[in-house]
Amino acid sequence: MGAVTGAPPLAAEDDLRRDRSGHLRGRTVLDRCIGWLLPLLFLVAIAPILDLVYWVASRALPTFTLSIITTNPSGAAGGLLSPIVGSLEILLLATLVAIALGFFGGLATAEYLDEETAGAIRVTANVMVGIPSIILGLFGFIVFVKYFGWGASLAAAGVTLGIFMTPYVYRATDLAYLSVPPHIREAAVGSGATPLQYLFRVATPIAFPSVLTGIFLAMAIGVGETAPILLATTPVAIPPLSLFQPASALPLYIWSGFENGLILPVAIHRAFQAAFLLLVIVVGLNVLVRIIAARSRRRLEGLFQ
């Protein structure tokens, strides 16, 4: 790119902005007012979420005991063991599917296709990100549950969610390998590395942290999704013993609570506790991503100095 972009840092007080008697000019006053008012808009974005986190935590934590994560649900009461286990199992399967379907595409686009083809193919992956998740859910229901005859099962939910997560992994891999600086590649090829040596010994070690952050981000998005798995599995009270048994999940647990009316206080508490666990997982994965990104950036800066 080369060109420096973005607004320059704030300048010091500027005498040109004052008229002869030293008063600020009208346009400058307007600028100052906007400078104070616009940042307040951050509150519009952040305040509701603080409210959300506060309410979810305040409804979830007072009745939170260890038995909630060690027992299965029974009716509106009981614990959250099977949704937690089911969520993790579905997420594990989905992540494997997404890596299998997305990683090699991203690698091929970044490393092995010419610029124009890669650009066009990138658009298709970006457009796939925009497909509404409920449509993915309907697709999974039609293909895996009905056509393949898997029924409402862990496999159908995991594969559907995996397809939902595929373009995220694809984009992350693509960007990760694209970000390997050209001079590193030239140095490797120039010192006689074969394409495979370059890929495994040079590009992958540099790109790996970014690929990993992309996969974690895809997991953070996938674990909270309700619509893709809603049709592919049913909220059951026990964790599945095989791939073709239905598996519950935390979002599905909240969903079925809503469908049953959320009238009993214990049902409301359980729903908020499931939501709280989801928030913890999502925020935890995001924090993990930032830690990995920061560490790898430090490492890369050391590498390129």
Partner: peptide, 29 residues
């Protein structure tokens, strides 16, 4: 700079909050 560096990732994080948590909060609170 230091303020936007703190606030921007926070706004980005909001994009990751699951839809169903918004729904539950919206419906009950």
């Amino acid at each position: 700079r230091f303020l936007s560096e703190w606030l921007d990732p926070f706004v980005d994080l909001l994009a990751g909050i699951p839809s169903i948590v918004y729904g539950l909060w919206g419906f009950l609170i």
